[in-house]
Amino acid sequence: MARIWFYMIAIGIIGSMVFNNLGELNKVILTEASKGVEFAISLAGVMALWMGIMNIAKDAGLIEKIGQKLNPIMTRLFPSIPKGHKAMSYMVMNIALNMVGAGNGATAFGLKAMEELQTLNPKKDTATNDMIMFLVINISSIQLIPFTMLKIRMDLGSQNPSQIIVTTLFATTVSTIIAIITCKLLQSKRRLR
């Protein structure tokens, strides 16, 4: 990955020198870098809010209750995870944060879930079906409230930033269902071999 970034930067600089746009390149680097920092700081507040809410929910036992409600679905999606295992609560927290659009905040719980799933893995150098399924759900992720996109749309002056909520919910629900079905089909095909 580092090589790819290096080549992209080198090609950009060389291209700017060849086409005599080095001044424009410097201007873009300075303005876009500061915009990136501003955006990261503005998102930090949203992420801190949701991480705090999720930690309070975890301490209050709400995550455990949500996990119990989701248990029939989660046990079908992740059949080899023992009941009450830590991985399941981390996965529920990750999925919940992703659903409210706090994907950056969900990352920490996703990493913890993968660590816990690795403790159940008999082949440490190969991902289990449960690990793959969790990754698929994490990537496709149903978005109830896409906070990050709403923030971007507000920052760019959208008249109605929340206009995308219904279409985003529909698109991410369909993508998640298709991802889960595809993953299950591939897992059953692998078992048959």
Rank of each mutant, 00 (worst) to 15 (best):
Met1Arg: 11
Thr126Lys: 15
Asn71Ser: 11
Ile4Ser: 15
Ala113Met: 07
Met114Ile: 11
Phe109Gly: 00
Gly23Asn: 14
Trp50Gln: 11
Ile181Leu: 12
Phe19Gln: 13
Leu22Asn: 09
Lys151Asn: 14
Gln143His: 06
Gln163Trp: 03
Glu38Gln: 13
Asn104Trp: 11
Ile164Ala: 04
Ile41Thr: 09
Asp130Ala: 10
Thr31His: 08
Ile9Gln: 01
Ala171Asn: 11
Asn104Val: 07
Ile178Arg: 05
Met133Ser: 02
Ile180Arg: 03
Gly103Tyr: 00
Gln68Phe: 00
Phe134Pro: 06
Ile14Lys: 07
Leu62Asp: 06
Met47Gln: 09
Ala33Ile: 09
Glu115Val: 02
Leu135Trp: 00
Ile137Ala: 11
Met17Thr: 14
Ala127Gln: 07
Lys184Glu: 01
Ile137Pro: 13
Glu32Ser: 15
Thr126Trp: 00
Gln159Phe: 02
Leu77Gly: 09
Ala33Lys: 06
Arg153Phe: 03
Leu185Pro: 05
Val92Asn: 04
Glu38Asn: 13
His85Pro: 10
Cys183Ala: 15
Asn138Lys: 00
Met8Ala: 15
Asn20Val: 03
Ile41Cys: 10
Leu25Pro: 05
Met17Glu: 11
Ile66Asp: 03
Asp59Pro: 00
Val174Tyr: 01
Ile145Glu: 00
Thr176Tyr: 01
Gly12His: 04
Lys35Ala: 09
Asp59Ala: 08
Met93Phe: 01
Glu24Ile: 04
Met74Leu: 12
Arg3Cys: 02
Met149Asn: 10
Thr173Tyr: 01
Ser89Thr: 09
Val18Arg: 01
Met47Pro: 07
Gln187Ser: 08
Ile145Thr: 09
Asn98Ile: 09
Pro161Trp: 02
Ile66Gln: 05
Ser16Pro: 05
Leu43Ile: 12
Glu38Thr: 09
Ile9Asp: 02
Ala102Arg: 06
Gln143Val: 03
Ile177Val: 15
Pro161Ile: 02
Met88Asp: 07
Leu185Ala: 11
Ser175Lys: 02
Glu38Tyr: 07
Val100Ser: 08
Leu70Met: 12
Arg153Cys: 03
Leu192Asp: 10
Val136Thr: 14
Ile73Ala: 14
Val18Trp: 05
Met47Asn: 12
Gly45Gln: 04
Phe39Ile: 05
Ile177Ser: 10
Ala10Arg: 06
Met47Phe: 04
Leu185Phe: 10
Thr148Asp: 03
Ala113Asn: 08
Ala108Ile: 11
Leu62Ser: 08
Lys65Gly: 01
Thr167Tyr: 00
Pro79Phe: 02
Ile95Asp: 12
Thr119Phe: 01
Asp130Phe: 00
Arg76Phe: 07
Ser16Ala: 15
Arg153Met: 02
Val174Ala: 10
Asn98Met: 05
Met131Trp: 05
Ile177Met: 12
Ser80Phe: 04
Met154Val: 08
Gln118Arg: 08
Tyr90Asn: 15
Ile177Phe: 12
Ala106Asn: 04
Pro82Cys: 07
Val100Leu: 10
Gly12Ala: 11
Met93Gly: 11
Leu185Glu: 10
Pro82Arg: 00
Pro79Lys: 01
Glu64Thr: 08
Gly15Cys: 10
Leu186Cys: 08
